[in-house]
């Protein structure tokens, strides 16, 4: 399955393609999303998942997309954690799949 290719994104854009590009960073890599994307959409348009699971070997890519499951939290280089499914993408965001150094209680 192509969607499982670690080099490509998971989500597939089907509509609303005429939006402006927004540049952001994910794990240090410069990528772009579209204006109006949530952080989750923008990251998963380029990457297969969001982060590692804390309690198992799997990866995480969100589950409910309505702010109810808390599966989709990501970190930022600076600033608070974001719930990817309900946070709009902003130009210049520097997102991380792992906590930055010095994050209190960082898991690893």
């Amino acid at each position: 399955m192509r969607g499982n290719d670690p080099r490509t994104g998971r989500v597939q854009r089907l509509a609303e393609l005429g939006r402006a590009n927004l540049a952001f960073e994910f794990d240090g890599r410069a990528v772009s999303g579209l204006a109006g994307d949530t952080v989750l959409t923008a990251v998963l348009a380029t990457f297969p998942d969001l982060r590692a699971a804390e309690f198992g070997p799997e990866r995480r890519a969100g589950f409910c997309l309505m702010g109810a499951c808390q599966d989709c939290w990501l970190w930022q280089e600076d600033g608070p954690r974001v719930r990817a499914c309900s946070t709009p993408l902003r130009t210049g965001m520097r997102l991380r799949s792992t906590p930055p150094d010095g994050w209190p209680g960082a898991l690893q």
Partner: peptide, 23 residues
């Protein structure tokens, strides 16, 4: 595993973002 979603998620992704959650 990543890539299993709720049905509601599949609908929200399409309606509010214009995307399918996979191929």
């Amino acid at each position: 595993v990543a890539g299993v979603y709720s049905l509601g998620a599949a609908q929200i992704a399409l309606k509010a973002q214009g995307v399918a959650l996979g191929r």
